[in-house]
Design a protein around this nucleic acid. Sequence first.
RNA 1: GGUCCCUUCGUCUAGUGGUCUAGGACACUUGGUUCUCAUCCAAGAGAUCGCGGGUUCGAAUCCCGCAGGGAUCACCA
Length: 476
Amino acid sequence: MKPVRTRFAPSPTGFLHVGGIRTALFAWLVARQQGGQFILRFEDTDKKREVAGAREHLVQSLRELGLTYDEGPDIGGPYAPYVQSERLDSYQKYARQLVEAGRAYADPYTPEEVQGFREAAQRAKQPFLYRNSRPENPPEWDGSQPLRFKSEPKAYAWHDAVMGDLSTGPEVIDDFILIKSDGYPTYNFAHIVDDAEMQISHVMRGQEFLASTPNYLNLYEALGLERPVLATMPHIMAENGNKKLSKRDGAKDVLDYIRDGYLPEALVNFIASLGWNDGTEQELFTTQELIEKFSLDHVQRSGARFDEKRLEWMNGAYIRQLALDTLYDKVRGFWPASAEAYDDDYKLRVLGLAQERLKFFSELPMLTEFFFTDLPINSELISGNKQLKKLDTAEIRSLLEQAQVSLTESDFSVPDITERLNLLLEATGQKPGILFSLIRIATTQAPASPALADTLAVLGKDRSLARLNAQLAALS
RNA sequence: GGUCCCUUCGUCUAGUGGUCUAGGACACUUGGUUCUCAUCCAAGAGAUCGCGGGUUCGAAUCCCGCAGGGAUCACCA
């Protein structure tokens, strides 16, 4: 059995969104599971479409998710270089081989002429096949014309590790371009040469390549190459609509999610679960479990929709599993600006209360702002409260004053505050819905906060009482 | 238009002839956890398994047809 070597071979023409990263993840999982290698290769043969910064973005996305590669453009390896534009000699060599074997020829037509053939086919409601116009005596290939593959149309039946048994007739085989007139190879040619030279055992790619696979099969044969295991991934679709997920639909890329404070492991778990499961009811998998349990034949054949709500849930679940110290470390950089003046101990206590409410880190300021700075008095919190709006100002004042008196005596430990609040409930004859809501609003000025005693204990005596005063003063 | 692929709750999915009057998770609804938000717990609603034929004692599961969706038919990948 050949050693397992998988690859992720993006073109640096855009940013990597969650759909694209899944292909990389699955390839990585297969390599790690089998103790093989995972390779990164840039397919930059279309110089016109290349986007500045895309390479760095790709590398960083993989690194953030922990999808480490063993060989790649920046780290080299036994089959370097891992950038197609630096491998032009290889393609020339294989191209010459095909020309000599009579399996490739120069395309003598102008682009306009080819376009004419295409339009004629369209008018006749036929699929366009270049080989129907194959020149009888093509000129010698001097590199200035495109080099085309001379295909040998035939039916194919092959196995795809995800899609199962597939088959097509000879009508889909055509003379595609191997080398463009600018000297660069097409993807169709380059990836086959590279995969062979780099000893790739499994080729994983998106569904958009399914239709051209028979042509690749034809080329493998012409080149006398053993073909790798083929695995075709279904698309990940946008949340609404049936189109494949794309940046245009507002799809975020991986780094956007990292920036919003999603945990890499949750992201990996979520992306893996889009189209894969282990056949049980398990939902949460550590990356290690994913490596152990992943299997291509359990990959779904139909497209999956990207449901961000589910990602949020999953990320929240991961956050809750984290030890507080670990969480604290990861959350650095997400605190509100007002938190800067506070020490680790205080922020740690705040984080302890926020942990079970956090779905991703960038929610932290919204959830904790009032622990660090006095929010302006918001009278609507009282007037808009279903129960509190029934009370008149005098009653509210009285309740707050009694709370103030009692809390002034407190040592502000959670048990002591709890006891005093309970006593207050009895003394005032009020329900928690009224008394606690009122104190909570007065001391936070926030629509939501953690449990009252916990919140007060973290805020501390001075600040809690000061806010009670401020609320009292604003009553009038 | 040709070719190929796909089709189970709104969403991600389990399911490979009988244990499926279809299971889990997200989302949603309701109740409980002394206030809010969240967590957690419990309960509920939600899928005639795309449709129509067949095979079989028996089909979500096998076969055929149809429909819908998607991909592809570039000197893009």
